Computed example of a mutant assay.
Amino acid sequence: MNNNLSTPIKEEIEGLSLDEDSAWADYPIDTILIRNENRTVHDVLRRIEKGAFVMDPDFQRDFIWPDDKQSKLIESVLMRIPLPVFYLAENDEGKMVVVDGLQRLSTFQRFVNDELRLKLPEQKELNKKRFSDLSPKLQNRIEDCNLILYIIDAKVPQKALLDIFERVNSGVPLTRQQMRNCLFSGKATSFLRTEASTPIFKRATGNSLQPSTMRDREIINRFCAFKLLNKNDYRGDMDQYLAETLKHMNTLDNAALERLSSQFRTSLKNNYTVFGKHAFRKHQEHQESRNVFNASLWDVMSVCLSRYSENIVEARAEMIRDGFYALMENDDFIESITLGTNQVNRVKRRFDLAKQMIEEAINA
C-alpha cells in the first residue's frame, strides 16, 4: 500500500452506475432550449467585469493556453478570421457559465487589459505588442469583433445540460463533477474542495480518488446528498440529485456547513477506526489484499457512521465489523452495491440493510 497521501493511487472505482450515460430520447425535444446571441468582444468583456459571466471554474486552472497560442487567437481576429461559436449555460442566478470558449474569452480579457504581450515573431508589426501599443484602428478591430454565443437555458433538465456540456466542449474533456463544479460554484464547491484536501479523507479513502477528475469531490458530493436530502426524494437520477445537493448547500449558513463538516470528518474517522485500509471496500474477515473503492458502499457507510460519536464506534468496532462481514454474505446487499446502483430500489435497499446492521451492532 502506498502511504504517500500526496499522490493518489490510480485504481478503478466500483459501485458507480454506468447509467449516467443518458440517451437523448430521455428528454422531450422541446425542453432542449438553446438560443443564440451576437455580441462584440467589448460587450462581453464589459459583462465579465460586471460579474455576469462565470469565468473562473477551478477545474480549468491547469488548462491555461500558453502565450503563443493566445497570440495566435488575437492574430486571427486582426486578420478577420471567423471564430468558432461560444457555448454558455445560464444558471439559476441569471449568470452565464462558460461551457466552451473559456480560454478564448480569457485571452481577450488578458490582452485588452494589457496582461498579454503578443508572441508573433513572423508578424514584426505585432510581435511583442500589448493592446495599448496597437493603433486605434487595430484596437477597434479587436473590440468590435463579433462573437456568436449559444446560450443553454436554465430550464434545461440537469441531465440534458451535462450531456450538452460533453458534446460541445472542445477543450480538455470534463467529468460530470467538473461540470457541476462549474455550474454551482459557491459555498458548496468550496466545501467539497476543502474536505477533499484533508489528511483524514485521503487516509480513509486510501488516497484512491483522483483530484484531477474531481472524483474525490464527487464522492463527497454523494455523502452530502444522502446526508442532507430526503432519500425518499431520490428518483433514480444521480446527476439531478447531486446537483440539487449543491444548490441546497449554497443556501446554507456557515454554521450549518461547519456541522456538516464535523459530521463528515467524524464519519471518516469512524470508518477508518473500524475498517482501516479496507474502509469503503468489499472485503472478508482476515483479508489482507485491498479491494477497489466502492462508491455505493461509501454512500451507506459514510452516512450511517456519521451519526455516532467516535467513542461509541470505537467501543463497538468489533460488532460493527461482524455485522459488515454478514452483509458481505448477503446477496441482496452485494447486488445493491454492485449492479444498477443508481436504481431507486437498490439505493433504498442498501441503506436499509446497512442502517439496520449498524443499529443492531451499536445497541447490542
Results as ranks from 00 to 15, higher is better:
Asn127Gln: 05
Ala89Ile: 00
Val99Pro: 06
Asp67Pro: 08
Val112Tyr: 08
Ile81Thr: 11
Ile74Leu: 09
Glu115His: 13
Val97Gly: 00
Val99Asn: 08
Gln70Cys: 11
Pro82Thr: 02
Leu116Tyr: 01
Val77Tyr: 02
Lys69Gln: 14
Gln109Met: 09
Asp68Cys: 05
Arg80Pro: 09
Val98Ile: 15
Pro82Ile: 02
Ser106Met: 11
Leu126Gln: 00
Pro66Glu: 15
Arg110Cys: 10
Glu125Val: 10
Leu105Ala: 11
Pro121Ala: 04
Pro121Trp: 05
Asp68Phe: 14
Trp65Cys: 03
Arg104Gly: 06
Asn91Ala: 03
Leu88Thr: 03
Met96Ser: 15
Glu122Leu: 13
Lys69Met: 14
Leu73Ile: 06
Asp92Tyr: 01
Val85Gly: 06
Asn113Glu: 15
Asn127Ala: 03
Val85Asn: 11
Arg117Asn: 09
Pro84Gly: 10
Leu78Ser: 12
Ala89Met: 02
Asp100Lys: 13
Ile74Thr: 05
Pro84Leu: 02
Gly94Cys: 02
Val112Lys: 09
Leu83Val: 08
Ser76Val: 01
Val97Lys: 06
Trp65Lys: 01
Ile74Asp: 08
Gly94Ile: 00
Gly101Met: 04
Thr107Ile: 09
Ile74Pro: 07
Phe111Tyr: 15
Ile81Asp: 07
Leu73Thr: 06
Pro82Arg: 01
Asn113Gln: 15
Arg61Val: 09
Phe63Ile: 09
Glu93Ile: 03
Asp114Phe: 02
Phe108His: 05
Ser76Asn: 05
Asp68Lys: 13
Leu126Ile: 00
Leu73Met: 13
Lys72Met: 14
Glu122Trp: 04
Lys69Pro: 01
Ile74Arg: 08
Glu115Tyr: 13
Val99Phe: 04
Lys69Asp: 12
Tyr87Thr: 02
Met79Pro: 00
Leu105Ser: 13
Leu118Gln: 10
Leu78Gln: 08
Lys124Cys: 00
Pro121Val: 07
Thr107Leu: 13
Leu116Gln: 04
Asn127Met: 02
Val77Phe: 00
Glu75Cys: 01
Gln103Arg: 14
Arg61Glu: 06
Arg117Cys: 09
Pro82Trp: 04
Leu83Thr: 15
Val85Ala: 12
Val98Asp: 07
Leu116His: 06
Lys119Met: 09
Asp92Asn: 10
Tyr87His: 07
Glu122Phe: 10
Pro84Ser: 07
Leu73Lys: 07
Pro82Cys: 07
Gln103Val: 03
Gln70Met: 15
Glu75Asn: 14
Arg117Ile: 06
Glu93Lys: 14
Pro66Thr: 06
Val85His: 10
Gln103Glu: 14
Tyr87Gly: 05
Arg80Asp: 15
Glu125Ala: 12
Leu88Asn: 04
Met79Thr: 08
Pro84Lys: 09
Leu78His: 12
Phe111Arg: 03
Asn91Val: 01
Val77Trp: 00
Pro82Leu: 04
